[in-house]
């Protein structure tokens, strides 16, 4: 049974027509004991069929360990968004980007394809000035209307500066990790396992924290 009804398929198709270039998706999964991996796989297969600009490649987390290592994938299901040339953008989705997160997923695809909204000069300067490794983990719930904007912002930072990587993490799919970071409200954003922020602030708020890491 298809995941998207006719109306959503048509809307998604229209939106994806706005993609400038191609985007590669590297999906890490395994065949056994991971129900959500199978659902995510089915979602990606259907989603990528909506635009010829989306190229999906499926990897086995264990058998393709080398590729997982290269992209820094440490759990599954994981969707890595790669650019047209197959280079890593630092953008990852851990879990199935359904519910409200469909919006952050589309937003990342459009941006990686080259369809980006300009960032004001002063903020752009601050993003480019980040010269250490920054890992942003955005914990979300799929019923949270405010979460996609936090995810989209973190992913945009990753896209603009190679030193930054950003993960969407569905707290319901990775409960241990959520407990480890004491997630009891979403979006919760963790920077380098050290600093944290609850709620979706403006881009400048992300930079304020990154600059003091």
């Amino acid at each position: 049974m298809p995941l998207f009804d006719e109306k959503i398929s048509a809307q998604l198709g229209d939106i994806l027509k706005n993609m400038d270039g191609a985007v590669n998706l590297a999906f890490f999964t395994q065949e056994f004991e991971c129900r959500i991996c199978q659902d995510t796989g089915a979602f990606l297969k259907e989603f990528s069929s909506l635009s010829e600009k989306i190229k999906l490649k499926v990897y086995d987390f264990l058998k393709d360990g080398q590729e997982a290592g290269r992209l820094g994938v440490d759990k599954i299901p994981c969707i890595c968004v790669l650019d047209a040339g197959g280079d890593d953008t630092g953008i990852k989705f851990y879990g199935l980007p359904g519910g409200y997160e469909i919006n952050s997923f589309i937003s990342s695809l459009l941006e990686v394809s080259g369809k980006k909204e300009p960032i004001p000069d002063d903020l752009m300067k601050r993003i480019m000035a980040v010269d250490r490794d920054v890992h942003i983990q955005v914990f979300v719930g799929l019923t949270c209307p405010h979460c996609p904007s936090a995810v989209a912002m973190a992913h945009r930072l990753a896209l603009e500066n190679k030193r930054i990587r950003a993960d969407m993490i569905d707290a319901a799919v990775f409960p241990q990790l959520a407990v480890k970071h004491s997630v009891s409200g979403v979006p919760k954003i963790v920077f380098n396992d050290r600093e944290e922020m609850v709620g979706a602030g403006p881009l400048a708020g992300f930079l304020d924290i990154i600059e003091r890491l």
Binding site: L3, F4, N18, F43, L96, I102, I106, L142
Partner: peptide, 12 residues
């Protein structure tokens, strides 16, 4: 699985 898509924000 539900999808709460905000179609307009991407097309506008």
């Amino acid at each position: 699985m539900d999808f709460n898509l905000n179609a307009v924000s991407f097309i506008a």
